[in-house]
Design a protein around this nucleic acid. Structure first.
Lengths: 345, 345
DNA sequence: CTGAAAGCGCTAACAT
DNA sequence: ATGTTAGCGCTTTCAG
């Protein structure tokens, strides 16, 4: 623990008999400084083990080079990829990421936003908790002109960009795929409808049914938390139903898979008796038997897009308030779990 | 963008006709200040929307309240849970997490360490890349007395704590489980053996064989990158083998699963002809058929442990250099893929 | 219990 | 091309 003393620009300045200002400029390779002076400065800095003091610099520049990220949970496959994508872009651009989880509660989301605000992040990337019904706790950012981008779980705001996939369209296509393949009594299992993503998927589902002149049946709508347990519970519900669905469109893969598995264990043939479509393209969907048809959700790309937009705005290259919504491509991946229904003739 | 001016302690001081020093103390509820003065200060601060300037404070205190995290990849199920665990502890203790990925390369790991060093993190939490053979790039931290904890992928260092599971023992138990269940020709599929985790697992595997008087056969050792593709390639290798294994112990689940699947598609019965044991307890392992026997890897707990130890050290509650290694409990979860072998009689 | 004063290390406007 | 100067906002002796 030999706490060596920190080297400052003043040490370098003194040793080189120049001013601290010149050192400061030389260190960031400012072309206004003589090339040989620059080299001398940089060489000595390295030799002395100089490291720039970020706080002093931040204090002066009033900029933190830090981007705040607030997400419901870190520990999903999807979110891990989003974060990886953001980290990739941020690092390349010299920004740090400070990440926090709301654990799906508004209370924590508010606390996290406050911390981020006090820490003076340069910008904020947010995926909203399901409990969040208004954006009041982000007003301090708006008022200070701190750029704010929502991704995945968004709410519209005139001054904030949103980055999403077209949940409505994806759900519509997923449902239409089932209909096209001959399924008619399609159950929808989803999460809290205050979440835009789930609300949109539900709309897409209904529209597809409508287009096939099918009236949505409320018995065919199951709202749970989309957990594995919810999937098993949904399966139990299905088994008790007098008139069972011939297909299930579930708003995530984990829930779809555990529902499917439970039914399978109860002797139901998948997809012959009940077909399945999930959402997210979780690695599990490729492994479960039968392989689950699902909607690919480009997490890494979404993370990259969000970080890129924010940083471009920060650098003045583009403005967040001009573009309002960016929609990423998402496509249906058809697999065994929704194979064409054999029509009994 | 109404860039309202920032409120500082001087503003509060002026308005209250007291000194900035008193405000500074009052804001952190220093009992040395008159209770009513404290209240006045805090009330006014809230009213004016005062937020403390972290840099100014950091600059003065030479402390960042930031913990750096360097991991090979963020986007695995395991690592997502590690990070979630760290974030949980760090947030509670008022620390920020700054996270970066080495993407399994030494070059990036060095660059990341340097950034963290320059950003003056208070402590560092590291899981090493596979390429890392020495700890030179962490010397600046050691020299400055900045605490450094390795987790999961560690290397021993007299001044750094390591947090791991007992990979040797877990692998030993996994292999012994197969042996106990009647399997004798056990293949081991693993990753780069410069990684301690894989080296330890390999040792455990060999020891179990030894204890059963079985000489390890080099044909039964497959070293790949443990990816899904590696799993499929390993399956192809097995199919071409004159003398096939009757069981496979794979150092992670993803690879095990894709190997198993490929064999299954080729008509091999699992576990009758070839049994499987994986490692990690990835969600996929519970979903694949047959369910995969695996070793539970407590990611969240590991993240919590690492963060807790670091913060305790930072707070002077305990020392990192005293304890050297913390071993977390990990247990074998037996499932269908390694059912007892039926002995032909 | 409160205040005065001296920086922490860096940057940027302004001057030379 | 380089130097001077004046802070950024906070903390912390030391003095009262």
């Amino acid at each position: 623990m030999s706490e060596e003393k920190e080297v400052t620009i003043y040490d370098i300045a003194r040793l080189l008999n120049i001013s601290a200002a010149t050192v400061s400029r030389g260190l960031k390779d400012d072309p206004v400084i003589n090339k040989s002076t620059r080299k001398k400065i940089q060489d000595l800095a390295k030799e002395l083990g100089y490291r720039s003091n970020t706080f002093a610099s931040n204090l002066r520049k009033k900029k933190t080079n830090t981007i705040g990220v607030i997400v419901p949970r870190l520990s999903s496959y999807f979110m891990a990829h989003v974060i990886a994508g953001m980290e990739h872009i941020a690092t390349n651009e010299g920004y740090d990421l400070v990440i926090s989880q709301s654990l799906e509660t508004l209370k924590k989301e508010i606390a996290n936003a406050e911390t981020m605000f006090n820490n003076r992040v340069d910008g904020l990337l947010v995926s909203l908790s399901c409990e969040t019904e208004n954006l009041d706790h982000f007003e301090p950012f708006i008022r200070k002109g701190i750029p704010l981008i929502f991704f995945d779980r968004i709410k519209e705001h005139s001054r904030c960009m949103g980055i999403i996939i077209d949940n409505y369209k994806s759900a519509y296509e997923a449902t239409k795929h089932l209909l096209d393949n001959g399924y008619r009594r399609i159950m929808h299992i989803t999460g809290n409808l205050t979440c835009t993503v789930y609300a949109e998927r539900w709309k897409g589902y209904k529209q597809a049914l409508n287009d096939y002149k099918i009236t949505p049946d409320l018995k065919m709508l199951v709202i749970k938390d989309l957990s594995e347990e919810a999937g098993m519970a949904a399966a139990a519900y299905i088994l008790k139903l007098k008139q069972r669905p011939d297909a299930v469109f579930c708003a995530n893969d984990a829930c779809a898979i555990y529902c499917m598995r439970t039914l399978k264990q109860a002797g139901i043939k998948i997809p012959e008796e009940i077909a399945f479509v999930g959402f997210n393209n979780d690695p599990m969907s490729k492994v479960v038997e039968p392989n689950l048809t699902t909607v690919n959700y480009p997490g890494y790309a979404m993370g990259e897009a969000a970080a890129t937009q924010l940083i471009n705005h920060l650098n003045g290259i583009s403005s967040i308030t001009a573009t309002n919504i960016i929609v990423l491509r998402s496509e249906l991946i058809t697999r065994e779990s929704s194979r064409k229904k054999k029509v009994k003739s």
